[in-house]
Design a protein around this nucleic acid. Structure first.
Lengths: 232, 232
DNA sequence: CGTACTGAATTGTTGAACAATCCTGCAAGG
DNA sequence: CCTTGCAGGATTGTTCAACAATTCAGTACG
């Protein structure tokens, strides 16, 4: 028996690269991208016929893709009326920050157990944000900010936390569309991310957690404020 | 304009009762039930043709239902091979408890802010378990135990936490299938649930949290042990 | 004993069809 | 002027049939 050869485990990791994806998944990928980048603004209706014609896929396949995105809460499905890009309410934003607080603070509290690779991911995200800021690419600053918080959640070392977090952040992008000035919204948090990363690196977990809480308070308040202004 | 009449808001709450569900969702409901009750054991293959014939729905509709359950991690989908009831590994169990710890301890820490209704849900679940135990309905004891932990997560007052928790617990049911003796596994935790509930009611949140951590340690160890025995 | 091949079975995807439902516009009536 | 009711068209829900792509089991062959 050679079942425990080391290279077998390595190959097992490559499995995911191998299994091709279905058409429906690829369609979902492209729609997801269009939604989070704002090309399909919240409230848009996605008709089966026009979308199917545009993407050159059958209605059945398109409907499978819709299902996936509905489950991810990026689309809402109204029976016999169609699917629409989700419109987040102020309550949704509050709830998103509530669960983010739970997951991210729990994760950072375990930063001591996390291996160096995960801590390095924090730093990489911060650097990406700083570079984007220096080059005035404000939307990329926002993306880097997301990557930073994905890395914070990643400190927990849990695939399910990673997956949940990915979904929450994608959903939160829907909320960002209400922010008219990406620079003013994203840029101030670069310093916070840098501070949190340095505190984690220095092993001052308690201080890092408090700094993270401050970020949540500020960002949530800012978003909710923007919603109230829009009479959301 | 009469848009702010009080009865309008009341009716808005009834909306959910009104919107019918699609066939695919009802099919998914049936399959989900069969899976968590063990009628479809982990590893079972669900062929599109036979399942479709049994449930009298078309292949397309069935595939939509499959997609939903794959997204809930109750089924796995292998390209060109079909869908199978998920087989949990010991690693999966560890990960499930990892995220449960994060969510449930965070939730219980906020028990002070939770309204009385949510605390009452804890007590209701504990009572249901005690009744089931007195009547030797051990599987119902397990169900009540799940309800208890759903209620613990419910203390956070977050729809998204509730939803995530529902999914995690459904997934965890797959692991319970390896426990040969439901009584020995579920019964001991009744006392723990009772203790935690009483501590929360008494406002001793810190103690309740520690008691909850003890439960996680014990239950996880017991499940992982069972997996190792089965050479999982 | 391992390999390559063949054919059956299953899934992936499409297109068309029909029923059920929703939306729009218009006409009638208060 | 505003509501109500009623076509008619448009869209979704669901099924069915077909074919391409792929896997699987068995078999012959070296």
């Amino acid at each position: 028996m050679t079942t425990t050869d080391p290279w077998v485990d390595l190959l097992a990791g490559e499995r995911s690269l191998l299994d091709r994806t279905s058409t429906a998944e690829r369609v979902a990928d492209v729609l997801r991208q269009r939604i989070i980048e704002g090309a399909l603004p919240p409230g848009s209706r996605l008709s089966e016929e026009s979308a199917g014609r545009a993407l050159a896929v059958s209605r059945n396949t398109l409907r499978e893709a819709f299902r996936l995105l509905v489950h991810e809460r990026l689309l809402v499905h109204e029976f016999h009326r169609g699917v629409f890009v989700r419109k987040l309410t102020a309550d949704d934003v509050v709830d998103l920050y509530r669960i983010r607080r739970m997951l991210e603070t729990s994760a950072i509290r375990r930063a001591g157990d996390a291996d160096g690779e995960r801590v390095a991911a924090l730093d990489a995200a911060v650097r990406a944000g700083e570079t984007a800021s220096a080059e005035h690419r404000w939307l990329d600053v926002g993306t880097a900010n997301m990557r930073f918080h994905q890395a914070v959640a990643g400190l927990a070392g849990s695939p399910r936390v990673d997956e949940t977090m990915r979904q929450l952040l994608a959903e939160l992008r829907l909320a960002f569309h209400v922010m008219s000035r990406p620079r003013e919204f994203h840029e101030p948090y670069l310093a916070a991310n840098r501070a949190i990363t340095d505190l984690v690196t220095a092993g001052e977990i308690g201080a890092a957690e408090r700094r993270l809480e401050d970020y949540f308070d500020a960002a949530e308040a800012q978003l909710v404020e923007a919603y109230r202004e829009l009479a959301g």
